[in-house]
Each structure stands twice: as C-alpha cells, then as structure tokens.
Design a protein around this nucleic acid. Sequence first.
DNA 1: GCCCAACGACTGCTTGAGCAAATATAACCG
DNA 2: CGGTTATATTTGCTCAAGCAGTCGTTGGGC
Lengths: 168, 168
Amino acid sequence: MTNVFDDPRITAVGLLYEVHAGLSARFAAQLEEHDLSTVEFEVITRLARSPGNQLRMTDLAAQTSLSTSGVTRVVDRMERDGLLTRRACPNDRRSSYAVVTAAGMQRLDETLPGHLRIIEQWFTGQLDPEALAALLDGLRRVRNAVHPGATAGSTDQEVADDCDRPDR
Amino acid sequence: MTNVFDDPRITAVGLLYEVHAGLSARFAAQLEEHDLSTVEFEVITRLARSPGNQLRMTDLAAQTSLSTSGVTRVVDRMERDGLLTRRACPNDRRSSYAVVTAAGMQRLDETLPGHLRIIEQWFTGQLDPEALAALLDGLRRVRNAVHPGATAGSTDQEVADDCDRPDR
DNA sequence: GCCCAACGACTGCTTGAGCAAATATAACCG
DNA sequence: CGGTTATATTTGCTCAAGCAGTCGTTGGGC
C-alpha cells in the first residue's frame, strides 16, 4: 500500500486545494444570498477598490482571473443588472471604463460584512494569532515564488493620470 | 485610503487564492505537456489510487470536484482517448466502473514525476522544514473546520467489497 | 500628412460543466 | 408477486469562459 500518492508533497497540495475548495464553497453560498457570483464579486471588488470606482476593461481583466472577452461579458451582465455602467474614456476612444453604480456600491456594502464574517469564522478565526501569522507567512513566501505577476492589489502605478476624471 | 479592502482578512484570503492560482497554473502547464487537463489528471489519479484502479462513477464524482454528469462526460472523453474503460459492475447492473487502462497508467507514470518536481520547486521546497510544517498544520486545521466532507483520500471504507472483482 | 504596426473592446465559435429529466435497475413492503 | 420508492448513470438544455478574428483608434516613422 506504500504507493506514490501518500507522498507528502501530494498531501500538501491536497490540503491547500481542500482549503481553497472549502472556502470557495462557503463564499459562493453567502454571495448567492446577495445574488452575486464569485466572478461578479471579484469584479465589483476590484472596481470598488480602484480610484473612482472604475477601471478600464483591460486593466480589470488583468486584475481578475478573466480574459478580456470574459470581462466584456461579465460587465455586460452586470450592466444589465444595474451594478455597473460603461463610461467612455475621453482621451482614448478605444478604451472604456467599467464603473460601479450606486446600486452596485450598495450591493457590495450589503455583501461585504457577511463575507468578512465567513472569512473570520472559517479561516482566520480557526487559528491563534501566531499560528495564523505562520500560515500567512508561509503562504506569502510561496506566493512570492510562484507569483504569476500577482500582488494585484494596487498595481495602478500611474494609471488614471490623464485619462481619468476620477470625480463624479 | 483606509478602506475596507486592506482588512487583514481580505489579505489572508487573497494570499491563499494567489497561491492556489499560481500553483494551478504551473500544474496545468506541466500537465498539458502530457496532454492531460486538470480534471483528467484528478480523475486518473483518484482511480489509480483506488483498489483495482477503478471506482464507480458515483464514487468518482464524490471524490472529485465534478457532478455525476460531469464525470460521465470526462470519462467519455478519456475512454475515447484510451486512458480509461468502463466496466459493468457484476452485482449491480445500474453501476459501472471507470477503470484505468494500461495506457492510462503509463500516461500517469510519465506525468507524475514532473508533477512532483513542480510541487517541490514551487511549493514545499520554498520553505524550510519547520515553516512548511507550520504552514501545513495551519492548513490542516482550517481544512478540518471547513471540511466539506473532505479527507477524500482513502474514504473507501468497505467499498469494493462484494461488488468488486478487483483483479482483472 | 500618410502608412503601418500596436492596441482596446467586442463577437462568433467551441468547449466544458451543471441542473433537471429520462431510463434502467434495485430494494423494500405488503 | 406486484407496486412503490430509491439509486446509478446518461442525456438535453443552458450558460459561462477562452481563443481567434474583426473593427475602430492610436501613435510612431518617414
């Protein structure tokens, strides 16, 4: 019975994947209560954390797990549902912005607290502070190695400089 | 700029997700060299680690991320490609087994070493033993909490008892 | 100013996955 | 034994996502 699949490396990956799957399922369940899919939540979050609550379609694609055509379609749906709007970029008529509407911001506001609660309940709250720190530290080091260009957070170096009227 | 999205909980999840995405991408790239998709690899692995290199369709679905209809179709494709065969269950004519063929086992043998190398290179090898242990311990605890019925490993309690002629 | 390469968004097509219905079989109960 | 209920798999339909091609726009070289 001493087969390859008991290899600790396999086990390690299995663990990571099970945690991911488990959390994803919890998230999906909670998001569904607010009529949001996982990608819609990701999209609206990325937009909301960006200056002016907007991003060009391409940048949005770069920050999410989607291709540009995927973004086109998610934004289509979300625009239809009133969560987002497209706005033309005044300086470059090829580009357009996806902007979160008031309704979209409200939906996000309704959704976030529960989302944070779930993270707390099933992830961060499961470990005492040192253990959590150790976990995150390990993850961070692996992330930095495997980095597919991530740290996607605020990568907007000088984006939204001259192409943008961030107010409104 | 002190917005909600800098919340450490969000960051923690982001880290986990980036690690997952990064590793998944590496895996997919290596698997593609051997003409296997992620789910195909998951399927063939689950089967190969099971007694007789086979599993009933339903059990296979339970052990993977797929629905039963999803399993039907993956097995369709893999059968067409010669990696798997269906075999009728002699005791229950509703059930059928998916069995790994010799070609399937060979494909898996060709694929696994590289797969393990990738895990080592980008994941387990990134941390010294204690840090890795701490990471895995943290993951394990979160997994046990969020557990969607996982520990999918050798859950086959008394499966393949009377419904099975595990030999050829 | 003109041309051409690069770029941004969108669309047609294909693929893979899930849900729900259909089919076949099994098990149970009287 | 006959009927009802549960279980295993497959199939029809729908939908979301990617790739590759299209169209309009931009910017640089000359």
